[in-house]
Amino acid sequence: MVSEAEKIQKKTSCEHQTDCMKLVQLIVDGQATDEQIVQFKQNMDKCLPCEKGYELEKCIKETMQLRLEKKCIPSNLIDCIKQKIKGL
C-alpha cells in the first residue's frame, strides 16, 4: 500500500527552472494571467524547487513592501522624467 507521503512526493530538480522563475516573477508582481497562475500552481504541486522559489520571492516582496519607506515625488521631477522618456 502507498502512503500519502509517497503519493505527494515532489521532484527535487526542475528542468524548466528559468521559465518557472519568470512565471514566479509575473505571479508575485500581479502580472500573470489566470491561466498562467493555474499552470504554475499545478506545476508547483509536483516540483519542490518551484515551490521554494515561489515562497522565497513572495517573502522578499512582502519584506520589501514593509521595510521600504514610501515618499512623495515632486511633480516637477515627474515632469522632467516624462520629458526625458519622450526624447528617447
Rank of each mutant, 00 (worst) to 15 (best):
M64Q: 14
G53M: 00
N76V: 05
S13I: 11
T63Q: 13
K61F: 07
E6P: 03
P49A: 06
V38F: 09
K7C: 02
S75P: 00
I37A: 10
I81Q: 12
D45G: 04
S3M: 02
Q39V: 00
K11V: 11
C50Y: 03
C47F: 02
V2P: 10
L26A: 14
A5L: 05
K7L: 12
K10D: 00
E57Q: 12
N43S: 03
K11F: 05
A32N: 07
Q39F: 03
I37D: 08
K10H: 02
D79H: 11
K58P: 00
L56C: 06
Q25V: 08
E35G: 00
C20E: 07
R67E: 10
K86G: 00
V2L: 06
E35V: 01
L77E: 13
C59R: 06
S13M: 01
G53Q: 00
E6Q: 14
K22H: 12
K52V: 10
C72I: 10
I8A: 09
T18D: 14
K11N: 02
K11D: 04
I37K: 14
V28N: 09
Q36F: 02
T63E: 10
R67M: 09
V38K: 14
T33G: 02
C50R: 08
K71M: 04
V38P: 02
I73C: 13
M64R: 15
L88K: 13
K84L: 01
L68H: 12
I85R: 15
K22E: 12
S75I: 15
H16F: 12
S3K: 07
E15L: 05
K52M: 04
L88W: 11
K61C: 01
V24A: 04
M1K: 10
K10S: 01
